[in-house]
Simulated scan of single mutants.
Amino acid sequence: MEGHFSERSDVYSFGVLLLEIVSGKRNTSFYNNEHSISLIGFAWKLWNEENIKALIDQEIFDPVFENQILRCIHIGLLCLQELVNERPSMTTVVSMLNSDIVDLPPPGQVAFVQRRNLLSPVSSENNQGPNSVNNVTLSEIQGR
């Protein structure tokens, strides 16, 4: 999205996939009006509020597997950490999923929490609507 490609970009993508599976929602179509946040931001908010169970899709929830589902969310958040060097390698992720690594570290701040609203007006002198923010072109968004 807005980051740089690295050897840990696949780890980030896998973390997004884990959250999408557990929540039953797609990151690209998730939108929370309350804080203009993505699925990733919503998961991070719930994690910090110690209410991460609210992320779990009720279609897949089974109390028997609750700990495994919560572990997947935890691993997903570890994959989404903002600092690339703090993300686990895919080999480590597999070990975490297989429970070879029992104690998981707490996740740090995740990347891309805030979603930019491309339809909100850009502050300008005339403020006529959503326009490009670069100095080369001026674009207006119009429906077909």
Results as ranks from 00 to 15, higher is better:
R115E: 15
E82F: 11
E50L: 04
C79K: 03
N67P: 04
V16D: 09
D103Y: 08
G24I: 10
L118S: 12
V16Y: 06
S38C: 11
F65T: 10
R71T: 05
S95L: 05
T92A: 14
D103R: 12
Q58G: 01
I73Q: 03
L70R: 13
T92Y: 07
S23E: 06
L83I: 14
L39V: 00
I37E: 13
F42W: 13
I56E: 04
K53Y: 01
D57Y: 02
H35F: 04
S99E: 14
D103P: 00
G108W: 03
V122G: 06
I56L: 01
A54Q: 14
S99A: 12
V16L: 09
D57E: 03
A111K: 15
S29I: 10
D100W: 03
L19V: 01
N33M: 04
L55C: 02
K25Y: 08
V22E: 00
G41I: 05
Q109A: 13
V94F: 08
C79Y: 03
D103K: 14
L80M: 13
D100P: 02
H35S: 08
N117E: 15
L77R: 03
V102E: 12
S23F: 08
K53W: 00
R87H: 12
D62Q: 12
L55T: 02
M90E: 04
Q114R: 14
E82T: 04
Q114K: 15
N33F: 02
I73G: 02
M96E: 06
R26T: 06
L18M: 15
L78K: 10
Q114S: 14
Q68I: 10
T92V: 15
P63C: 05
M90K: 01
